[in-house]
Amino acid sequence: MNVFRLLGDVSHLVAIIILFLKIFRSKSCAGISGKSQVLFALVFTTRYLDLFTSFISIYNTVMKVVFLVLSYATVYLIYLRFRSSYDSESDTFRVEFLLVPVAGLSFLENYDFTPIEILWTFSIYLESVAILPQLFMITKTGEAESITTHYLFFLGLYRALYLANWVWRYHTEGFFDQIAVVSGVVQTIFYCDFFYLYVTKVLKGNSKLTLP
């Protein structure tokens, strides 16, 4: 464990909690892409299959459980509890265009052709594109509540911090996980234009992000 990874996990947790609380307290999921949240729940499900088979640390187990519970709870809030506020007309990204290539690639490019490893690889590739329905929805509606932009900021920051963690681990222990690093770079690049808008608009105190 290093400071970059710890900050990354905290940033990830903050993002997930921000989103859950925003929906739970405002009793509305307006502007939120349910499709992205389903993809994130799928990412955690396929990545944390070893939750019951291999114990790594209390921290590892607790964080996996928290991520799984909060992501499924968020999907529940969007599609069941507050489904009347779910804007399905704006959440139209064709997720099959993500799932099929990601599934195909995880069979082609992985470290070990076993179910656990292929599902882990699937979760890594899927996570790098899971935010696209949400970013697409924002470009389609042309705006996002500021709380949603804070969620996206911490979510994008988390993988950027993981990139720093991999640079650090490469230089200190020679560790290099090419699949995770390449996917992490792609994932973080998708946030770049959002980061620019976030810094230039939201942090200037605008109530919400409106796209030009």
Binding site: I56, K64, R169, F175
Partner: peptide, 10 residues
């Protein structure tokens, strides 16, 4: 560089 994944990262 090693090509492996870490099992302790989230």
């Amino acid at each position: 560089a090693m090509m492996s994944r870490s099992h302790d990262e989230l």
